[in-house]
Design a protein around this nucleic acid. Sequence first.
DNA 1: TGGTGTGAACAACTTCACAGCG
DNA 2: CGCTGTGAAGTTGTTCACACCA
Lengths: 211, 211
Amino acid sequence: MRFLKIPEAVGRRLSVYARHLSSLEAPDGAVITSAELAEACGVYAAQVRKDLAYFGEFGVRGVGYEVQALRARIRTILGLNKTWRVALVGVGRLGEALLAYGGFRAQGYHFVAAFDAGPAKVGRPVGDGLEVLPVSELPRVVAERAVELAVLAVPAAAAQAVADRLVAAGVRGVLNFAPVHLAVPARVVVQPVDLTQALDGLAYLMATRHR
Amino acid sequence: MRFLKIPEAVGRRLSVYARHLSSLEAPDGAVITSAELAEACGVYAAQVRKDLAYFGEFGVRGVGYEVQALRARIRTILGLNKTWRVALVGVGRLGEALLAYGGFRAQGYHFVAAFDAGPAKVGRPVGDGLEVLPVSELPRVVAERAVELAVLAVPAAAAQAVADRLVAAGVRGVLNFAPVHLAVPARVVVQPVDLTQALDGLAYLMATRHR
DNA sequence: TGGTGTGAACAACTTCACAGCG
DNA sequence: CGCTGTGAAGTTGTTCACACCA
């Protein structure tokens, strides 16, 4: 099974599985079945087994999966066995909330720079020992600090221009909070997180599926 | 075509289309083709046409779609032609950032209550004339203020308990920022927005698709 | 016996290709 | 003539059902 094409959605689900396994705080040797893991994550047991089987066989038939080993294995698959060096662009309220969010650090995401276009914000200390830098410094600092990912929390009107600069500076992954579709080269990965769209999706489901 | 089952993803894309149409600030009578709209939103032209056709025929063959009419039509489909009454639960940094986020108000989402479990926060003024209320007041206030949607920005450990109270109080839609899967009755819609998972997805794509 | 791993059936969604119409 | 609307083909992802093995 190892060399089949792997569905897009598998990555998202693995992240959910890993999170649940972490939350269990299970002792070494503890075991979990696909049915239990599926129940906790809101999917079917066969889905769990298939997702895991894409990457090898690490369950024991008749028994289940060893919790800590499975967790470690999934984290490796997701690329979480390393520290990712992240830059924040756009130090507004949302940006600051993201800098302060403990979940990122816990998963191995490490903010190493913060940028903003507003002169009022430049120079201010933020997060864990960072200083807000002007966007003009972006190319130099991204290179110097070996930034791999960027979190984009700027107004929609500025997003594409900033994305272009990030791409030019060598960033290969962008988490985009701006409510616009970003056009980037194929080698760059963009993950949109659109808060309004999420609410719209909710409104749509409530308007159609119910009542 | 009107009575076929409509794919899940259509709601999300309609939200994107509407956003782009709004951003055009096109004068009355201006027209856009499916190809143009598709280009701006990062999808194929046939996808745009099919999505729109689920809800009726509102293009003109050989011409395209009238921008303002299309925008209005999509907003109606999404249920955005009304004001949604929203409660925030969890007034941390993220919660405050969400309260302050202009995009919500602009789309017709109106925060009418804010709750927090921390005594230090209760009583503080937040957002646009709101006061942080204790979670114990939730059932009464949700009913009195006719809350329809909730934005859940509490720690993972508290999320399920809060969700249970929201559901019991009559809320039928939840935007969940807590990194856990919520178990709710089928009549309630949950839209997860998981920031860590979004970053994990990025890391996964970069680890697998590239290099 | 009980739960994994997996081919095969199924379901959902997307893309194509072109008829139909302004 | 050009762009929409849409059946049909193609692709992708999910669920089933059972062989297999600790």
